[in-house]
């Protein structure tokens, strides 16, 4: 398992973080009309940088990295009912995150293909 983790590299951790961020932004969009809801976001890039800097040990700690990077979004234009969801911001963040998820998936796919071709006898 650990060998597979190190072989797959950062892409596996990135995919997990992107998946977590997808849920957080989906939660913001779901609560667009809930009074008093404060929009949150996951700083996936910073969490990923921390995991990358920590090397393999950091990658194992990646489970907790997602939860630690959860922050409230600074409201661009807070509404009267205390809701800080800005739909345009959320939509942009969601689209960006979906794209990066797909990118991580592609990198992971490339790694798997490489491993498969290395294991296959010609």
């Amino acid at each position: 398992m650990t060998m597979l983790d190190s072989a797959l590299g950062l892409s596996a951790a990135a995919l997990k973080l992107r998946g977590q961020r997808l849920d957080v932004i989906a939660g913001n969009i779901a609560n667009a009309s809930t009074p008093g809801f404060k929009a949150r976001d996951l700083d996936a890039d910073a969490a990923l940088a921390r995991i990358g800097a920590g090397g393999f040990a950091g990658m194992l700690a990646g489970e907790q990295a997602g939860a630690g990077a959860l922050k409230f979004r600074a409201a661009l234009q807070p509404s009267l009912d205390g809701n800080t969801v800005d739909m345009a911001t959320e939509q942009a963040a969601f689209a960006e995150n979906a794209l990066k998820y797909r990118a991580s998936l592609e990198f992971l796919n490339g790694r798997i293909q490489t491993l498969m071709s290395a294991m296959r006898p010609e």
């Binding site: 977590q20 849920d23 957080v24 989906a26 939660g27 913001n28 779901a30 609560n31 009309s33 809930t34 009074p35 008093g36 809801f37 949150r40 996951l42 997602g66 939860a67 959860l70």
Partner: peptide, 13 residues
């Protein structure tokens, strides 16, 4: 009356 329901990091309504 909408209310947020939290489940760990996830939030729904």
């Amino acid at each position: 009356v909408f209310a947020t329901r939290y489940d760990g990091a996830a939030a729904t309504v």
